[in-house]
Simulated assay, not measured.
Amino acid sequence: MSDLVVDLRHVRREYQTGDVVTVALADVSFQVDRGEFVAIVGPSGSGKSTLMNLVGCLDRPSSGEVIVAGKNVQDLDDGELTELRSKSIGFVFQQFQLLPLTSAVDNVATPLLYQGVKPREARRRAAEMLTRLGLGERLNFDRARLSGGQQQRVAIARALVTNPDIVLADEPTGALDSASGEAVMNIFKEMNAEGRTIVLITHELDVAAAANRRVHIRDGLIERDERSPLTAASR
């Protein structure tokens, strides 16, 4: 199995509204190895959200190649793209996006059910993951009974429970207070230490500092790609 989980090659993404063409990404190339913790950093309008949509197989490039978990996105039809997202990518969003009036354990079990896992086994695996993230006593709480930090931990458990090739986190601390945000970042660091591949989208440099590698993007181009000294020395 290749150690390369994400491979973008000269990617361009532009949007056309009437006669106006907006270039969100101009010419972006970068790779993510299995087991890396990468932060994609940039201000609003830099192109990082577009980059997230491409890495997450939610969009296709105008030109260039996007290869995720060994699959070239351009070669896949919509059904195959949905399957790739389901099996290979775990999403964590800023606003949690939990199902309302649904328990934490059933929220986490949902992606397993979509993969055809039997309900009893799905709930067992969901409960195990939630317990591991410190929510063993809140398995049956719905989102209204959970704090913001707890809801984000449920969202992380949901992203991890399918054992995806990559966890893609979009501003995961943006809706949290500083203490809850720090706790969430500690979870990501622990998961990465166990070998999980994490790509984090953020505009906050202090959040990005938790990653071993930071890819800075501005005006649709990669400005610089830097690694923590310890990580760089090991390569």
Rank of each mutant, 00 (worst) to 15 (best):
D19A: 13
V38W: 09
A127R: 14
R124N: 06
I222R: 06
R12W: 03
V105R: 09
V154E: 00
A175V: 00
I198V: 12
L176K: 00
G70V: 11
R158Y: 01
G195S: 11
D27C: 05
E80A: 13
V161Q: 04
A122V: 12
D19P: 00
I156W: 10
L176H: 04
A210V: 14
Q152T: 13
V215E: 05
P61F: 05
A179R: 11
D219V: 04
R227W: 12
E171P: 09
A69N: 01
R123P: 09
V108R: 03
V32T: 01
H10D: 15
R125L: 10
Q151Y: 10
G56M: 09
N140H: 15
V55S: 10
E128V: 06
N107Q: 13
V73R: 02
N107S: 05
A169P: 08
G195Y: 13
G79E: 13
R60F: 10
A193L: 13
S46K: 02
T162P: 07
T102C: 04
V23R: 03
A24D: 08
H203R: 03
G70K: 04
T173K: 04
G79R: 14
R124Q: 11
S49T: 15
E137M: 12
S88A: 15
A159M: 03
A159I: 04
E194L: 14
D142V: 11
G116D: 03
E204P: 02
D106A: 08
E204W: 02
N186Q: 13
N212Y: 00
N163Y: 14
D225N: 09
A122C: 11
S180Y: 08
Q94C: 01
L54S: 04
H10K: 15
R213V: 07
S49D: 00
A104N: 02
I222G: 05
N140I: 05
G42A: 14
E121I: 11
R9E: 14
L54A: 12
A122M: 05
V28W: 01
R235L: 15
G220D: 06
R214W: 03
R124V: 12
A193C: 06
A126H: 02
H203G: 00
R60Q: 10
V5T: 04
T110H: 15
P111C: 07
E226G: 00
Q16K: 11
G136T: 07
Q151F: 04
R224V: 00
K48Y: 01
V161C: 06
M52D: 05
E36L: 02
R123L: 11
V38H: 01
G56W: 06
D142A: 08
T202P: 10
G42L: 13
I198T: 09
D225A: 05
G148M: 03
R153G: 00
V154P: 00
P119N: 08
G195M: 08
V73L: 14
G42P: 09
R138V: 01
S103G: 10
R12M: 09
S180C: 13
D59K: 06
L81Q: 04
K118Y: 08
R227K: 15
M185L: 14
Q31A: 13
S88M: 05
M191N: 04
R218W: 08
R235S: 12
V215D: 01
S103Q: 10
A210G: 04
E137K: 15
V105H: 11
G35T: 07
